[in-house]
Write a protein that binds this DNA or RNA. Sequence first.
DNA 1: CTAGATGCTAGACGAAGGTCTAGGTCAAAC
DNA 2: GTTTGACCTAGACCTTCGTCTAGCATCTAG
Lengths: 154, 154
Amino acid sequence: MKAAGVSIGEVVRRTGLSVHTLRMYEREGLLIGEVRRDDQGRRVYTAWDIEWLGNCVKFRASGMPLATIRQLAQLVREGTGNEAQRLELLREHRRRVTEQIAQLHDCLALVDSKVAAYEQHLAAGGAGDPWQPPAQAPATTPRPDTDDRQTIKQ
Amino acid sequence: MKAAGVSIGEVVRRTGLSVHTLRMYEREGLLIGEVRRDDQGRRVYTAWDIEWLGNCVKFRASGMPLATIRQLAQLVREGTGNEAQRLELLREHRRRVTEQIAQLHDCLALVDSKVAAYEQHLAAGGAGDPWQPPAQAPATTPRPDTDDRQTIKQ
DNA sequence: CTAGATGCTAGACGAAGGTCTAGGTCAAAC
DNA sequence: GTTTGACCTAGACCTTCGTCTAGCATCTAG
C-alpha cells in the first residue's frame, strides 16, 4: 500500500495551518508524539497526525488554549488509564463552548437590533438617530453632584 | 433629578471591566468622547457611557478587536451622516459572529462525539480506545516511502 | 490626626499565539 | 551545473489585550 505519510506542505494545505505553526505546535508538545521523519530528516505526517491536527484546529477555533491542548495530548500520549481525565477535560471545554455560544447569541441580538435600527433610520431618510449620545454633553457645567455614587457604596 | 453621573468604581461593578481596562479604553479612544470629570478630576460616567461600555463588552466577548470598536466609536462621535458606514461595520461583525457560532457548533459536535465515546468506553469498563494513536508508531522502520507526497505536487 | 478607600497619571510588564529571518540541505528541473 | 522549491533549525520579533507599579491627591471615618 502507498500513502504511508504526508509532507508538511501537504498538511498545510489540508489543515489550513502554516508551516511555522505546525512546527511550533510540535515543538510545544501539542502533537501526540514527535512527528516521524524520512531519511532526509523531513517530517512525515500520518493520517492520524492529520486527524489530530484537525481536532486541534477546531479546539483552537473554539478558544481552547494551547496549554490545554498540550494537556490533552499528554494524556492521550500516556495511553490507556486516564480516560476519566480526558473526559473531564473535554466536558470542561464543552461548558466553555456552550457558554461562548450563549454570549455570541447575546451579542448577535444586540447587533441585530442595531442593524435593524440603522436600516430603518436610513430607509426613513435619516429620521431619528439610533445610536447617538444624548445632547453630546455641552462641556459646560460638567458638575455631576457627587451624591449619586454615594448611594451605591456598601 | 439625581443620578447625574457615576464613579469609575461603580462602572467597574456594573460592567465587569477593571479600572485599568476602563481607563485604557478611554485612552484608546473606544469611548465616544472623553469621560467628563468632577471638580476633583475624577471620571464621571453618564448612563449613556455605561450603556456604550456594555455594548463594548459584548463586542469584545464576540471577538471584535479594539481597533474596530474604536472605528465605530469614531463614527458615532462624528455624528449624523455616516450611518451607512456604521451599518456596514455592524453587518460585517454580524457575519463574523455567525461564522464563529457555526465554528463553535462544529467543535461542539466533535467534543460531544468524543465525550460520548469516552463515556461509553468507561461504562464498558475500558473496552475499546476512543482516541488512541494507531499502534503508536514502533519507532523502528520509520521510512515512509517518499513516493506519496509526490502525488500531490502540482 | 491618621488610616483606608478611591481616584489620578504615566509607563512598564506580561501572556498568548503567531510570524518571520537567517543560514543551510537536498533533489528534481532547466 | 545552477536554479528552484520544499524542508530544516534556532531564535528573534510582533500584535493584541490586559494588568500592574509607582507616586501622589482627596475624602471620610474612627
